[in-house]
Computed example of a mutant assay.
Amino acid sequence: MRIDAGTDRLMGATVTGLHLSSASETEVAELREAVYSNRILLIKDQNLAPKELVELGRALGTIEVYYEPMYHHPEHPEIFVSGTKPGESFEGVPQTGKFWHADYSFMAHPFGITMTSPQIVPKGKRGTYYIDMAKAFAALPEDLKDLLRGTRVEHSPRRYFKIRPSDVYRPIHELQAEIEEITPAVFHPTVFRHPVTGEEILYVSEAASFGFVDEDGRRLAPEILHEVLERTGQLDQTFTHPNIHLQTFTEGDLLVWDNRALVHRALHSPKPEPAQSYRVTVHDQHPFFGAGA
């Protein structure tokens, strides 16, 4: 197995010479550690079957099955299906993730590792944008960092909830009430130390964050959240902010990333084209929030 981090990108490494369908426990452990040190791994030439993708997830930790069944692979509910594939007997969910987020941040127990296996990659432009929230936090002014330490941030899916076929014609107040019942807002540490690398992580996203509260539960001014999102690059619609990294991929690749430290946003082709990926999400052996939480 070769891990090449390169020198011409903000983050990430390319992995070659590894066959995940027959990887040893030692190789899987080495791969897991490489995720923490490189943030993103692009593992080439895999072409994993759905069953093999699930088995890899179990080798890395404990799989978290997504709470909305409409995203599930029909034979392997551990797999979250994004997009559609012509000729398949089931429908995936198109145009997912078109906003800055960390997977499952709106749940009480987020997970540490996300894996994505592209099944169909459009001919048009496609990829995933990432921001390293450890580096983004380190670049903030000292007074803003001091203000954020010790606060908690509200997370909820209510801003970008994906409407389901069963929601058509439902009164909006019923849908809003259901969102609040099934996924009530949670408050996570705004800043915590990564349990492996020790870096301070800023746990804030444009999609799921709704403001800060101090140690006494008092709300901070909403302008602070706007400033944080702007400074980290999440409000830049040109995607030229120096914090933003675009990761491209092709069919047969496997993307594995550190879901604690990164926020990401899908880049979809501007023209409607078939597109599909399989995602598996994993709780690793470390507590999600390290010291300072």
Score class of each variant (00 low, 15 high):
I3M: 02
T7L: 11
L10I: 15
L10N: 14
V15M: 04
L20F: 11
S21F: 10
A23P: 07
E25F: 09
E27M: 09
L31K: 00
L31E: 01
Y36A: 10
K44I: 10
D45S: 12
L48I: 10
A49Q: 15
P50M: 12
K51Q: 15
L53N: 01
L60Q: 01
L60E: 02
G61M: 08
E64R: 13
E64V: 12
V65F: 06
P69W: 10
H73D: 10
H73V: 11
P74H: 03
H76T: 06
P86Q: 14
G87P: 10
E88H: 11
E91Q: 15
E91K: 15
G92E: 02
V93M: 13
W100K: 04
M107G: 11
H109V: 13
H109Q: 14
P110Q: 13
G112H: 00
G112T: 02
T114S: 14
V121W: 05
P122T: 08
K123A: 14
K125E: 14
Y130L: 07
I131H: 05
D132Q: 06
M133F: 03
L147W: 00
R149W: 07
T151M: 10
R152D: 02
E154S: 06
H155L: 11
P157Y: 07
P157Q: 04
R158Q: 07
R158W: 02
Y160M: 08
Y169P: 00
R170P: 03
E174G: 01
A177E: 12
I179D: 05
I182P: 07
R193K: 15
H194G: 10
T197F: 10
E199L: 15
E200Y: 03
E200A: 07
I201N: 08
V204H: 00
E206H: 06
F210M: 00
G211I: 02
G211M: 01
G217W: 09
G217P: 10
R219D: 09
L225I: 07
H226F: 13
Q234L: 08
Q234E: 14
D236R: 09
D236H: 04
T238R: 11
I244K: 06
F249V: 09
T250Q: 15
D253S: 07
R260F: 10
A261D: 10
A261P: 04
V263F: 06
A266R: 04
A266W: 03
S269F: 00
K271L: 11
P274M: 05
P274V: 03
Q276K: 12
S277T: 13
Y278M: 11
Y278A: 02
V280P: 01
G290W: 14
A291T: 13
A291H: 14
G292C: 08
A293N: 11
